[in-house]
């Protein structure tokens, strides 16, 4: 096992553990904080996979912006923390069933697929190269992304307006 391999397994266990903690926390603030850990671990993994620019984006956008938004919402909503079990059984049981099938399929695919046996080599895409590549080849995709973000902005603005227009026919 090389040093890189060691780092990978370390990061993988950190990511899985923190995510597992996140989804089982009753307190939403704790859950979000665990998830920040998970995302930072993912960012390190990105770095390991030779995408430093994306790792930075991951930290800034995911672990920074998005998680902070989550925290804000959690504080705004003030959910009732005394709900019943964290993972209710009548939802968990079918999930476990299908999750087991999914896991079997996934492991079988990962084992049988010859592409999966190839060992990853280290390589780095410098931010300059990456930027050139994106704007030379995928400028249309960038435009579409900006459009999607604009729509997201408009939707959030529309939904978040203070005065909610009451539609008479909708039952409250």
């Amino acid at each position: 096992m090389t040093l890189h391999g060691l780092i990978f397994y370390l990061l993988a266990s950190v990511i899985l553990a923190s995510t597992g903690m996140a989804i089982t926390r009753r307190n939403l603030v704790h859950a979000v904080l665990y998830l920040v850990f998970s995302f930072i671990g993912s960012a390190l993994l990105f770095c390991l996979f030779g995408a430093p620019f994306l790792a930075l984006l991951q930290v800034i956008i995911y672990a920074g912006a998005i998680m902070v938004v989550f925290l804000f919402i959690v504080m705004m909503v003030k959910p009732d923390l005394s709900e019943g079990t964290v993972l209710p059984l009548r939802q968990l049981l079918p999930m476990v069933l299908f999750g087991f099938m999914y896991a079997v399929v996934g492991v079988l695919v990962a084992v049988t697929d010859p592409a999966g046996r190839a060992v990853l080599e280290t390589a780095v895409a410098k931010p300059t190269e990456f930027g050139h590549y994106v704007f030379a080849r995928h400028y249309l995709a960038v435009e579409i992304i900006s459009l999607i973000l604009l729509i997201g902005l408009m939707g959030a603005l529309h939904l978040g307006r203070e005065k909610v227009p009451k539609e008479p026919e909708e039952p409250s």
Partner: peptide, 20 residues
């Protein structure tokens, strides 16, 4: 809604079973 989400997931899993 969560049961619908579960159904989507189940359908995807079964589809993957079928495809692979």
């Amino acid at each position: 809604i969560q049961y619908r989400l579960l159904m989507i997931f189940a359908a995807t899993v079964l589809l993957s079973l079928y495809f692979f």
